[in-house]
């Protein structure tokens, strides 16, 4: 720091630059090592953005990208005028918000409980069993859900009938207002164990001395969970949370596609499904691209809003 303050402003800036290059030279191997990844990201994440110009064209795959007809904002206007777009947006946000809330609280609670377990063997087996469904394909899960909720000998209906809670089997899959719940619940079943792994790992990293100290201070189990374990995983939690807010709108369409049926169409259509049906399936690539752009813009907005709130509350930032 010393030579910097002594020299004139001009000399200082050249020095600074020199220092930069010197440091860069010193760290050349680190730069070289990161280079492949920078190239990789550039090729796969930035080069494709070039395709966005098709959103302002009437793209036909036959001709090259320069011979296409330019249509300005027509595709966007059509998109914003389509009332289905708003239904789809509502469904997407509703299902992903529900998924986000349930999909974060339950795995944290599960990890907390598991963390309190004493027997290693039992703990490990529970953990393994709980994350196995993660590897089951959605096609199979959808089949299971349909079978379980069927009125024709489905387990859930039989249980409810046996408990005398209902006297007629409920047509779960035919009720639009239940659809979001069914999707959230099946997603939870599938992903709970898997998402809890990372929290368990974060909990394992907490300094045991903290627990010892609080034991000395007379803290009980719940106090320790509340004052040590939870704050200990806060950063992990927040990073994951904000990152998944970025994915809020791109929840994919597998589950909705596989679990949906015409009766619940107003609740099951999501963004990607809409893009597929009215974009790619009909060869309207430009329209599909326009949907993609809106999708990305909304995602970025959501992330910044979430991060802004977090910053305001905790004076820290993750991005």
């Amino acid at each position: 720091m010393k030579p910097l303050t002594e020299g004139t402003l001009e000399a200082g800036s050249t020095l600074k630059r020199n220092r930069f290059w010197f440091k860069a030279y010193q760290q050349r191997y680190l730069y070289m090592m990161s280079l492949p990844f920078v190239i990789w990201i550039f090729i796969f994440s930035y080069v494709p953005i070039w395709g966005w110009i098709t959103a302002f064209q009437n793209y036909k795959p036959k001709d090259s990208i320069f011979d296409q007809k330019w249509v300005g904002f027509d595709n966007f206007i059509e998109l914003f005028q389509d009332e289905r777009f708003y239904i789809v947006l509502r469904n997407t946000l509703a299902m992903s918000t529900m998924g986000l809330l349930v999909g974060f609280t339950v795995p944290v609670i599960f990890a907390l409980l598991l963390n309190e377990m004493r027997g290693q063997f039992f703990k490990r087996s529970v953990q393994t069993i709980s994350y196995l469904p993660h590897f089951v394909s959605w096609v199979v899960v959808a089949g299971l859900v349909y079978k379980m909720l069927s009125t024709d000998g489905g387990a859930v209906n039989q249980l409810l009938m046996w408990l005398n809670i209902i006297d007629q089997p409920i047509q779960f899959m035919a009720k639009g207002n239940l659809f979001w719940g069914i999707v959230t619940a099946s997603d939870l079943w599938k992903e709970m164990g898997w998402s809890s792994i990372i929290f368990l790992a974060a909990m394992a990293g907490i300094d045991p001395e903290l627990y010892e100290a609080s034991t000395v201070d007379g803290a009980g189990r719940f106090r320790k969970m509340w004052h040590i374990t939870l704050p200990g995983i806060r950063t992990t939690f927040m990073v994951l949370f904000i990152l998944s807010i970025g994915h809020l709108i791109s929840i994919g369409f597998e589950k909705q596609f596989l679990l949906g049926n015409p009766l619940v169409a107003d609740y099951s259509e999501v963004f990607d499904l809409y893009a597929l049906k009215y974009g790619i399936q009909m060869s309207r690539y430009s329209y599909g691209t326009a949907i993609g752009i809106v999708n990305s813009v909304v995602s970025i907005l959501l992330v910044f809003i979430a991060n802004g709130i977090y910053k305001r509350v905790t004076k820290e930032t993750v991005i």
Partner: peptide
């Protein structure tokens, strides 16, 4: 009419 007629997947229908 089978109340599941419009929610069942082809597999379910065929199994019946």
């Amino acid at each position: 009419l089978d109340p599941e007629s419009f929610v069942q997947k082809v597999g379910q229908y065929r199994a019946k």
